[in-house]
Amino acid sequence: MAKATNTELIDLLGEKFGEQLFDVSEPYGLLTFSTTKDKVIDVLSFLKENGRINFNFLTDITAVHYPEKEQIAVVYHLHSMVSGIRVRLKVFLHENDPKIASATVLWNGANWMERETYDFFGVKFEGHPDLRRILNMDDLGVHPMLKQYPLEDPNRVDKKDEYFGR
């Protein structure tokens, strides 16, 4: 099959979802767009199951925290091995109540990726079979990748700020 192009894909998605997809851009050739959290599973399953584009492969799920906008963006990278093209789908959630539907209904591989995202950012994936921390200890209490938390262990006593000029 010939390689599908981004324009083709934009037309196809625009036809199907219209205004529900926004912020379309192509940084470094990778088609990027956003959708709302209600539509995310519809969009993902359309991308996965449409015979013409066939994004059968979930490359990655992660999140980004934007504290000044009070938002957390959940980012999906999909890959169509058949037509050799990637897309990036973003869903912006409010940081106080980050909830989104789980993609485990479409890909088994989403399971740990979502657990990692939950662990790091506290995004709650609804419908996930087993949403608990994966890398950090259960009693950590915070979601460490959020920007407000420091890199270093705040409980350290041997590291005095005055030695580091702060």
């Binding site: 890398l135 460490p144 938390y149 420091p150 890199l151 270093e152 262990d153 350290r156």
Partner: peptide, 8 residues
């Protein structure tokens, strides 16, 4: 690895 998760 001077981080929150690593024993120093």
């Amino acid at each position: 690895f001077d981080t929150y998760s690593v024993l120093q």
